[in-house]
């Protein structure tokens, strides 16, 4: 087995190690302030019909101008956006019905705009990431623009917040007038007597949602398992990088470099997208996300339409269509 896939096969446990402790600490911080469960979202009129569109923040969202095309075509169904795609949505006049946030780390607040940011962050994450290119060009100006957008549209937004979410993110959402609907990440097998998930549910009464490793997959789960949508389209869900991306511009580059030294390039896994004929590549994390998504799609009571028009997420469990095909017939 190649190195990238070998690492990917160990990321189930590694993810628990990475986020369980801080996620549970964040849940304890949020607990006194939790008012509404994510299950209440199913009772609200969030778009018409039984179709939803999940907006993830992979590079195809910009390469394929997916949001411009969505705004031009219109969509009567439910729009669920990941936190890192929120600003791009609002810039294009797309106000999602629900925004999903899960990550326990404080830097995620940047996706909602940081009003107090005075200097560019020492961490180059936002200058390097592929999810919203405007942050790479001018970090400070991009942040000011996001603050203005989120302040303007915040009162119209509902956030499906994992109890693992960073307190700074939750504070920012509240300050911008967003309404919060809470859920627990499913950390482990809830049937085990020593289950962390079971204990967390006992403490706060909230449902546990199987997140699939990342906020994009968690948003797709929310669309069909919480909102009950039977046809779910996805855009911007690449789980990989376009052929011309330098390794230095990938999300886990510093970690792979630290771990593997000069061998870091061996950790990337290459796929040919059968629709585009393009060779995309993933790092071990995205490779794991892809495997998990395909496993979950086999079990889901919904049809999944990948309208990303790029990336590495393809298989018999998923229909690959253009965005317009889904918007018109999905």
């Amino acid at each position: 087995m190649e190195l990238g896939r070998r690492i990917a096969s160990r990321l189930h446990d590694a993810t628990f190690d990475r986020i369980a402790q801080v996620g549970l600490a964040n849940a304890a911080t949020h607990r006194p302030h939790i008012r509404r469960s994510v299950l209440e979202l199913a009772k609200l009129p969030l778009g018409a019909g039984d179709a939803a569109l999940v907006v993830a923040a992979g590079p195809s969202l910009h390469r394929r101008r997916s949001l411009e095309r969505l705004a031009a075509r219109g969509f009567p169904g439910t729009i669920v956006a990941v936190d890192s795609a929120l600003a791009a949505c609002l810039r294009n006049g797309v106000v999602p019905h629900v925004v999903v946030t899960v990550d326990p780390h404080d830097r995620i607040v940047r996706w909602f705009g940081e009003p107090a940011l005075a200097v560019p962050s020492a961490d180059d994450y936002f200058r390097r990431q592929e999810m919203d290119p405007v942050h790479a060009a001018d970090e400070m100006a991009a942040n000011r623009a996001v603050v203005a957008l989120v302040d303007r549209d915040g009162p119209r937004l509902r956030v499906a917040a994992a109890t693992s979410a960073a307190p700074s993110v939750v504070s920012r959402c509240r300050a911008a007038g967003m309404e919060l609907f809470w859920w627990n990440p499913m950390y482990d097998d809830y049937e085990r007597p020593d289950s962390v998930s079971r204990e967390l549910h006992r403490e706060n009464g909230l449902p546990c949602l199987n997140g699939g490793g990342n906020v994009g997959t968690a948003s797709w789960v929310l669309a069909h398992a919480v909102l009950g949508k039977r046809r779910v389209g996805i855009i911007g869900m690449d789980f990989g990088y376009p052929p011309d991306t330098p390794y230095e511009k990938t999300q886990y580059y510093p970690e792979l470099r630290d771990m593997l030294g000069e061998r870091f390039g061996e950790a990337f896994v290459h796929f040919e997208n059968p629709v585009l004929g393009e060779k995309w590549f993933t790092d071990p994390a995205y490779c794991w996300f892809r495997d998990v998504f395909l496993e979950m799609a086999r079990e889901a009571r919904c049809e999944t339409f990948n309208c990303t028009e790029g990336g590495v997420l393809f298989g018999p469990e998923i229909k690959t269509v253009t965005l317009e095909e889904f918007l018109d017939h999905g």
Binding site: R18, A20, G211, N214
Partner: peptide
């Protein structure tokens, strides 16, 4: 490896 993991469990 924990630095390479996801943002939510599966």
């Amino acid at each position: 490896l924990s630095r390479l993991g996801g943002s939510i469990c599966f």
